[in-house]
Structure formats: C-alpha cells, structure tokens
Write a protein that binds this DNA or RNA. Structure first.
Lengths: 126, 126
DNA sequence: TATTGTACCCTTACATCACTTGGTACATCT
DNA sequence: AGATGTACCAAGTGATGTAAGGGTACAATA
C-alpha cells in the first residue's frame, strides 16, 4: 500500500490520508480483512503525528471503511468498498443548504444565521 | 425617547439600539406613527457611526417595527408593538438546532458540520 | 514487556468572520 | 442648499475555529 502525503497541499493531512485509503479500497489494493498499519507505525512512516493518523482512522471507522479490533490492530471493513463511495458529507451539504435557504428566504441576515449556528454548536459539546 | 448605549457591553452596539427601540415600543414610549431621529442625527447623539445606526434601522424595518418613508424620515410601524415581541431569531435557533441535532445523531462530526455550513454560506453571497 | 487503540492535557499557526469605523456618492424630497 | 435613506469600498480589532503537533497515560492483549 503506497500512501503519498503532500504537506503543501491545501487539503488537510488527515483528509489526504482518508482519501488515499478509500482510493486503495476502491482499487482493490486493500481488500476486506486486510490489516492496516498501526497508528503509531503509519504516523512514523509518513512522518505524521499520531493524532493526525488517529483522527483519520477514527473517521474511517465511523464510515465503516475500516474496523478497529481493539488491541489486535485495524482491518479493512467487510463492506469497505461500498462505504468508500458513500459520501456522508453530500447529505449534510444538501440538508444544510435547504435549511439555510429557508432562512435567507425569510429575510434572515447571513450574520444572524452565523450567530444562530454558533450558538447551537456551542450549546452542547460534541 | 432615552437611549443608553454601553460601549463596554458585550452586546453589539447595533443590537443594543434595536433592543432599546423595541423596548420603547413595548412600553408605549414610542407609538405607531411617531417619528424617529434620522440615522445621521441619532448616530451623532449617541456617538455612533452612521453605519451602525443604519444597520439597526435596516433590521428594525425588516421586522416591521419601523417604517422608512424615503426622504421623509423613519416612523414607527403601525403593528410595531406586535412585531417587537416576535423574535425571528427564536425560530432560526429552533430550526437550526433541529438540523444540527439530526447531523449529530447520524454521527457527523462537529468539524464536518462546520465545514458544510461554511461551504453553503460561501456558495451564494447574501 | 511490548503493542494495540484511545483519551486527556496544552500549545502553535492560520484562517475566517463579526463589529465598528472611515470616507464618498447617489437620487429624491422640502 | 439641506436633509433623507441607501449604497459602495476599505480597514482594523477581537473572537473563535481548524489543523497539527508534543506529551502522557490507560486497559487489554499477545
């Protein structure tokens, strides 16, 4: 598995990692059940921080592209290929767009929309 | 009509102005048809910038609390009292809260929500 | 004991936006 | 001429978020 990370790319490092792994899955370079490098090892290989790799892995597991089996390591999810094409962000983008469009049509200022957004996001921690 | 603006208050100046005028309407210190000071004059009286007062007036007119009659000045809206209690932001806050709650329950990261929000807001200027 | 994923602390750099102020200009009315 | 609301471009300050890094620690496994 070859992974290339470009520090100068505007795309965040963790996002690049996610993209590379998803692409590897789609190209059958990574097959369900295959083992992935440990967080620390991959971070060392790519000269990244553990936290950065851990973040990528966390997001990939949430999307069911990979599967972490505790202390035994991390593996490619059985349905990885299908889940690599699913873009959760697309649905979020659509839904968010509808909501904001409704606000704007009601005459709500962009400024007020931003304030409301900030309030809601801060009212409950992640 | 007495208006008190506190520079050291964390509440934005234009928001303070809006609040004061709405309160004056609710207390019958301002009645429908009453004339309001011109933007420039009020800005001068309160030691504010024209733009700040203009912004407050613009928002107040959007909410039908006041009515600008071109070059003849600005007046209190006939339904000002009713419209002063209506809080557009409340509806925005609720709707926004529902949308974000749906995202969170789907496992979407706060980070991703913010990115989607930023994308949508920037995709179409106000 | 070494390694696994995970969690928490704090810090840095960078970007974005809200708010405010400044100045200038316009068409319209009195 | 003077006043009205409105529009445009520009700038600085402060707050806040992301991304990334450093460091340390934990329980569970081989």
């Amino acid at each position: 598995m070859e992974i290339i990370i470009d520090i100068d790319d505007s795309v965040p490092l963790f996002a690049q990692l996610i993209g590379q792994i998803k692409k590897a899955v789609l190209c059958d370079k990574l097959r369900p059940g295959d083992g992935l490098p440990s967080i620390r090892q991959l971070a060392n290989d790519l000269n990244l921080n553990n936290k950065t790799v851990a973040k990528a892995y966390r997001l990939l597991e949430r999307d069911s592209v990979i599967q972490t089996k505790g202390y035994r390591g991390t593996f490619v999810h059985p349905d990885a290929k299908a889940n690599s094409t699913v873009d959760l962000n697309a649905w979020v983008l659509t839904k968010m767009g509808e909501t904001i469009a409704a606000f704007r049509e009601s005459g709500v200022t962009d400024s007020e929309i931003r304030i409301a957004f900030g309030d809601v996001m801060n009212r409950r921690g992640n």
